[in-house]
Every structure is written in C-alpha cells, then in structure tokens.
Amino acid sequence: MVQRASAVSQATEQTIFQCNYCHYTDYAPVINNIRDWEYGVTGSYDYYQCSHCEGVQLNPFPNLEDLKLAYDIDYHGYAEGQKRGLLFSALYAAKEKLFRRHMRKFVNPSSKVLDVGCGAGDFLDNMQSLGVSRLEGIDFSQEMIDKLNARGITGHCGTFPQFDAEFQSYDLISMNNYLEHTLTPVQELEKSFDLLRCGGHLVGEVPGFDSWERRLFGRYWGGNHVPRHTYQFNTDFLYKILQSAGYQDIQISHQLNTGHWALSVQNFLQRKAPDLKHNPAISSGRSRVYVPMLLLFIPINIFCVLMRKSGCIKFTAQKPLANSDHD
C-alpha cells in the first residue's frame, strides 16, 4: 500500500482569506474543522464562501505541489475496476451502461475526445465501447498515463493549464469529477472552450454543495474530500462560470448517485479513529460499510434528485457555432 501523504504545508495557510475568483477578502465560513477521514492527510480545513461572488473554496488553500502530495495515497480514483470488489463493480457497470446511452448524443466513431483528469481511464473506456477511436487523456499521475498508453490510448502527463495542445480541436471534452480538484477552475473552463471545435461539447460532474446531504452531515459530508476538493459548486454558480467562459446551451441536472451519502456515513463512523493514516478499516479510502450504504440510500437519493437537492450535479455545455451570437 502506498504511504499516505503528509499535511498541506504551513506555507499555504492563509491568515487573510482572498477569493480566488474575484479577489475580495470578505467571506463567511460554511464548514469548519474538516479532516481527511478517508486517507488521513493531516490537517484541519474549512470552506469559506466569498461574500461578493459567492464562490466557495478551501482554506488553507494548497499550491500545486501540496495538491499532488494529497494524491500520493492508495487513491480510489486510480483503482482499476477489477480491484473495486464484485458488488461495487456490478453497480458501477449498471451506472456506466446508462452513461454510455446518454453520451451517444455527443459522439460518433469519428469524434475526437479529451478526458481531463482521466485517472484510471474509465470514461475513455466507455468512449471506446461506443466506437470512438481518437481518444486522449490527461492526468498528473505518471502511473495512470503509462497504463493508458499501454492500452493504446494517448495519455498526457501534467496539468490541464500546462497542456500544450496548439491547433488541437476536440469534439468533446470531459471534466468528470474534476473542476472541484483544480486550482483555477475558471481558467480551466476557458481553456476547454478554446480547445473545442465550434459546436463541440463540454461534459462534466461536480459534487452538489447545496445538497441536503451536505447540510445534514456538515464536516463529515463525503463531498468535502479535503484537501483534494479545493472548490465547491452549486447549480447557480456553476452556470455562471460556464457562461462566463463563453459556453451556451448549458444544461445542469441533479443525478442519482449515492456515493457521497455512503461516504458521509463512513466518515462519521471513522471520525474517532486514532490514526487515519494507517486505519485498518479503510482500503483505497473505502470501508466495508461503503458499498451496502450505496444501496441503502437509493430511495432517499431519488427524492433528493426530484427536489434538485442531490449531492451530484452533471453539466453539459456547447461552444457556439462560428456564426452564433453569444455574450
């Protein structure tokens, strides 16, 4: 098992909060004293909401090197499907089947697709199953990129802002569970806009910060995922930054996904573990209660989706055609 990372360095701590969106220094604390209940990265973190633009960000805020250290763990996002357990794999396969059906409206065999924050490459595997062959992924894990290249998919190791893709033109860019992990989400959306062909689409998913589950569990909410989740989004704010990047036909929907419910229960149960770094009850950030909780919370999550208070929100957005007028 990979040794879990150390704390975010003290150099990144902010004695005066400054919003990374609008640079104002007025804020309201939303959640305090959150810990990394999953992997044991040391430190205590808060979420602050800017009183001016209403953006929500982590405090203390990491730099890139600190953020990379927070993934130097047996991270679940880097786990291959066969290592997730039979029940989880069955649930995951059912979810992915529905996802592939949804994605058919955006791609065809000739589409060129980029997955940002590709991890183990699950999204790109789904695209292959739809007959798409021009596939690329980017992630800052060299191990994941090496595995991607070994499967015949073009992988780029690094961060998206550093990605040198001059003259590239993609039909689809994916940012599934990615924006909340970034240092500069607005700039990342602007770059995705620049790399898409006219009429191309951006698709993605983020935790729903305005969800009932977040309000219920507070510091134990699975969507906190500190210090890896640097930003949080509600539907209004997400729409605003997508629009500011130039996108149109923005669609945001609440999704059936009980992962944060299950993880919230796990976090609450593990809150008094004496050593979260070496917690024998946790493997790849997940305990034995996680998968049964995925099933248990399906009924309440359906109700949350209907009320638009789910902890998982998906978005699609389109780059306008060349002759379209847009703000």
Rank of each mutant, 00 (worst) to 15 (best):
V2H: 10
R4F: 07
A5G: 15
S9F: 02
Q10A: 13
Q10K: 13
T12S: 15
T12W: 02
T15E: 10
Q18E: 13
Y21M: 09
H23D: 09
Y27S: 04
P29N: 11
V30A: 01
N32T: 14
N33W: 05
E38H: 09
G40N: 00
Y45W: 10
Y45D: 00
Y45N: 04
Y45M: 06
S51R: 14
G55M: 12
L58Q: 03
N63L: 09
L67S: 02
L67C: 01
A70P: 03
A70H: 04
D74S: 10
Y75C: 06
G77A: 14
Y78N: 11
A79T: 15
G81Q: 15
G81F: 08
R84K: 14
R84Y: 07
L86C: 08
F88R: 10
F88E: 12
Y92E: 10
A93W: 00
K95V: 10
K97R: 15
R100N: 14
R100V: 01
M103G: 02
K105T: 10
K105H: 14
F106P: 00
P109W: 05
S110W: 02
S111L: 11
V113N: 00
G117M: 08
G121P: 04
M127K: 11
M127S: 05
S129C: 08
L130W: 01
L130R: 01
L135W: 03
E136Y: 13
E136A: 14
G137P: 03
Q142W: 08
A150S: 15
G155R: 04
C157L: 05
F160E: 04
F160N: 04
P161K: 09
Q162N: 14
D164K: 15
F167V: 07
S169D: 06
Y170Q: 03
Y170V: 01
L172C: 03
I173F: 12
L179K: 04
E180V: 07
T182D: 01
P185A: 00
L189V: 03
K191Y: 05
L196E: 01
R197G: 11
H201C: 04
L202V: 02
V206L: 06
G208P: 12
E213N: 04
R215I: 11
F217R: 03
R219P: 11
R219A: 14
R219H: 11
G222M: 05
G223V: 05
H225M: 08
H225T: 05
V226D: 01
P227L: 08
R228D: 00
T235G: 09
D236T: 14
L238Q: 12
I241A: 02
L242I: 04
Q243W: 05
A245M: 10
L256C: 08
H260G: 01
V265Y: 01
R271H: 12
D275Y: 11
H278C: 09
N279V: 07
I282M: 15
R286F: 08
M293D: 06
M293K: 08
M293F: 13
L295E: 11
L296I: 15
F297R: 03
N301H: 08
F303Y: 14
G311E: 02
K314S: 06
T316M: 06
T316Q: 09
T316A: 12
L321A: 05
L321P: 00
A322C: 10
N323T: 15
